[in-house]
Amino acid sequence: MPTDSPFPQLPVSGITIPTTALTTAALSYSREHTSASTVNHCLRSAAFALIFASKIPPYAAADAEAIVLSCILHDLGWAIGDSKALLSSDKRFEVDGADLAREFTRTHSDYDEVRLQEVWDAIALHTTPSIALHKQPVVAATAMGILADFTGPHHPSGLLTVAEYKEVVGAFPRLDFREELPRVMCGLCRDKPATTYDNFVGEFGAELLEGTEGESYRADRDKHNVRKMLLGGLEATKQYE
């Protein structure tokens, strides 16, 4: 690894975050558009993803650069300040991140459409492990690494050790990530609520938004309840059958 690498050595974990023109540029891009605690979350996720890839035989040949790229860029949908102009008004944050990452990668690399789609899938599906874990190794390892930053050694795979966890968090400190997460989720519920009703983001809004704002959000979310929509739709179609 070059001595000027932005990625530290992780001897306990035994993995090396690849220092390439693409991963270095991606890190700069993430730092430009997201908060310091989000960047460190993405770097921890990348390290955890590589640890899993090193321990799961089917993932051994996975493209480490693509895994790291996907992890570093996966929360571009949390862009802050003026960078919010990059975001859509009608897409889930995962899709915003996937779209931005695909365009960034297309501009900064020679990835073909298949590899670009893997990066897009890895980011768009990272909050849906029940799907991501059944796709390509890059997609699955990315989802596992991101989840590990929330579960630590209690990851359901049982493959992450306490020593590995401590090393990664020591290299990329949490800063105020625990406090930032609910702020970001509630911000999404305020800024584009329609993208949050059918997924976990809405749980933050329903629980944490207060006063009339919270009451209004919960009422709107209830109107878009998926169970009610499906059963109500079936009932409404009876007249045509």
Rank of each mutant, 00 (worst) to 15 (best):
W120M: 02
G202C: 05
T212K: 15
V138I: 13
L230E: 07
S83C: 10
Y217H: 06
G211F: 06
V168W: 09
T128Y: 10
I67G: 00
S70V: 02
F48L: 09
A236F: 04
A206Y: 04
S5P: 09
A79T: 06
L208V: 03
A85T: 12
L27K: 01
L231V: 14
F93Q: 10
E207W: 05
I15P: 06
D198P: 01
A143M: 03
L100Y: 06
P18H: 02
Y197S: 07
L188I: 14
P2Q: 11
V114C: 11
I51M: 09
T16G: 01
A66G: 07
A53L: 01
D176Y: 01
S130V: 10
E32R: 15
S35G: 14
P8Y: 07
D63F: 00
T212D: 15
H108V: 03
A219R: 15
E118R: 11
P129Y: 03
Y59F: 15
D191W: 04
G145C: 05
P2K: 12
H33C: 06
H224M: 12
L231S: 14
W78G: 01
E241H: 13
K166V: 11
L208A: 05
F52R: 07
R92Y: 09
A61H: 09
Y59I: 03
E213W: 12
P57E: 07
G77R: 10
H126G: 02
Q136E: 15
P193C: 03
S70A: 15
L125H: 09
S216Q: 13
L175H: 04
